[in-house]
């Protein structure tokens, strides 16, 4: 063919369109929200407010990073919210039980943290094994474990609230409220998790395999990918990240109840999708998820900082912005 040589030359360098809405969509939405926030309230960019928003984004954010891998590999986990509540409850019980022997100090807290990670690992392993070994739909497995975890925390708390021993709490409190150079720990942990997640997704075989499995499980299997092992790893990783988020959450209010973590799963999934990850799998973007989490929290923050709309309509505003952020990305596909 006459055009073969030119075609090949064009192939030498990867070419990117100047502006790709699919890529910048979530960033544009974030930028617009920030501008709106600044215009509506001068305190919006104050140190206090920025810190507040970032720190409260951290729980959902850390979980959503793990969720990005699960969704990219074609899975789903609806149980993370109740899992967080359950782990928080267990963690509090473990620490309270140890206070009489070890006294209220860092050893108790460190054991509590380790317990949270172990419980997260086990919860994720449970979900993952049912999905990969027993071959039950992820939706059903995690819908089931969602109910189980939620009931267990309600039962553990006797319908009420589990509160961390007050002395332990005073020692533990800085983990949420303090930090380094004015950046609080949850923000630092979130940042580290996000960067590690981004690298894992884009630059490791694990991330590539997640995308391959989500794109077409058969192809992955035929290409020497250990489909079950990778799937299992995504759920275990998510479970441990839920544990990590819980470690950050417990010192905030020092309590866990059946109301803890309600609807976190939907917020995490929404953040993942807003960030450009494909719900049915095959493509995932961790930095997008981070932007998605920030968008969700900024909307709430801006609505609280202003009196523009009736609080009854908060949900509607949030819904419209979520859908818009996704529509912005999809436009390109019209071609």
């Amino acid at each position: 063919m006459a055009d073969a040589t030119t075609t090949r030359q064009e192939l030498r360098k990867p070419r990117r369109p100047a502006v790709n809405l699919h890529v910048v969509g979530p960033l544009v939405a974030l930028a617009v929200l920030i501008v709106v926030g600044v215009l509506l309230n001068p305190n919006f960019l104050s140190y206090g407010n920025v810190t507040n928003v970032l720190a409260r984004s951290a729980f959902i954010g850390i979980i959503a990073v793990g969720m990005t891998f699960v969704i990219t590999s074609g899975g789903l986990d609806l149980s993370v919210g109740s899992m967080a509540a359950f782990i928080a409850g267990l963690m509090i019980l473990v620490m309270n039980a140890l206070v009489p022997t070890l006294g209220p100090g860092w050893p108790v807290i460190l054991i509590g943290m380790a317990a949270a990670l172990v419980f997260g690992f086990l919860a994720g392993l449970g979900n993952g094994l049912l999905i990969t070994r027993a071959r039950i739909e992820a939706f059903i497995v995690t819908l089931g474990s969602m109910g189980i975890f939620r009931s267990l925390i309600t039962w553990l708390a006797d319908g009420g609230t589990l509160s961390l021993n007050f002395q332990v709490r005073d020692v533990y409190r800085p983990v949420y409220y303090d930090g380094i150079l004015g950046v609080s720990w949850p923000i630092i942990v979130f940042l580290v998790v996000a960067i590690a997640g981004e690298i894992a997704m884009r630059h490791t075989a694990f991330g590539r395999h997640c995308a391959a499995i989500g794109s077409n499980e058969q192809v992955a299997r035929y290409s020497a990918v250990h489909v079950e092992r990778v799937r299992l790893a995504t759920y275990v990783m998510l479970g441990m990240l839920v544990g990590l988020a819980t470690i950050m959450y417990v010192p905030r209010l020092g309590s866990a109840s059946s109301a803890t973590g309600v609807l976190w799963e939907l917020e995490a999934i929404a953040a993942v999708i807003i960030g450009g990850t494909v719900l049915k799998g095959g493509f995932g973007r961790v930095w997008g998820t981070v932007v998605g989490v920030l968008i969700l929290n900024l909307i709430q923050n801006i609505l609280n900082l202003t009196d523009l709309v009736s609080p009854y309509l908060n949900g509607a505003i949030q819904g419209v912005i979520i859908v818009l952020a996704v529509v912005l990305q999809r436009q390109k596909k019209a071609l």
Binding site: I199, H203, T204, A205, R208, H209, A211, A212, S215, N216, Q218, V219, A220, R221, Y222, S223, A224, V225, G282, F283
Partner: peptide
């Protein structure tokens, strides 16, 4: 259905089978 990931670009498709040859941890 079994050979190629149709929604991905050529590069990830090309290296999927032999990915371990493109770096131990980071690709």
């Amino acid at each position: 259905e079994r050979g190629l990931l149709l929604n991905l670009a050529m590069r990830p498709n090309l290296t999927l089978l032999a990915l371990s040859r493109f770096g131990r941890f980071l690709i």
